[in-house]
């Protein structure tokens, strides 16, 4: 009962203060996809340092690579995956 891994988000922030992350997302290639992805980062106070978006193969899928630093970066994978246009999210710690 003791080690229940209960942590508030605030506690999480302190643990990963300004971490550097690379997110590799595959999304539907729609005009707003990049803006939706960027919105999740900005809402959570993460500053995108570099971003690259390019159509894949048959151009129906886009690959977005985002390099950023931010306090909440690690927690955002699920929030990104929840976006309707997002097909997959990979996070690579630097």
């Amino acid at each position: 009962m003791v080690n229940r891994g209960f942590q508030s988000r605030a506690a999480n922030h302190a643990a990963c203060d300004m971490e550097k992350q690379t997110f590799v997302l595959r999304t539907e290639n729609r005009v707003d996809a990049l803006r939706r992805v960027a919105g999740i980062f900005s809402r959570n106070g993460c500053n995108i340092e570099t971003v690259n978006a390019r159509p894949e193969g048959n151009a129906s899928v886009m690959e977005i690579t985002v390099f950023l630093s931010g306090e909440k970066a690690r927690e955002l994978k699920k929030a990104l995956n929840r976006l309707y246009d997002v097909i997959s999210v990979d996070v690579k710690a630097k």
Binding site: M1, F6, S8, E75
Partner: peptide, 20 residues
Amino acid sequence: KGAKILHIDIDEAEHGKNVT
């Protein structure tokens, strides 16, 4: 605090968002 928490939800982003 004295309990184990079992969380059943359809949205994976809710698991661990506010309470782990």
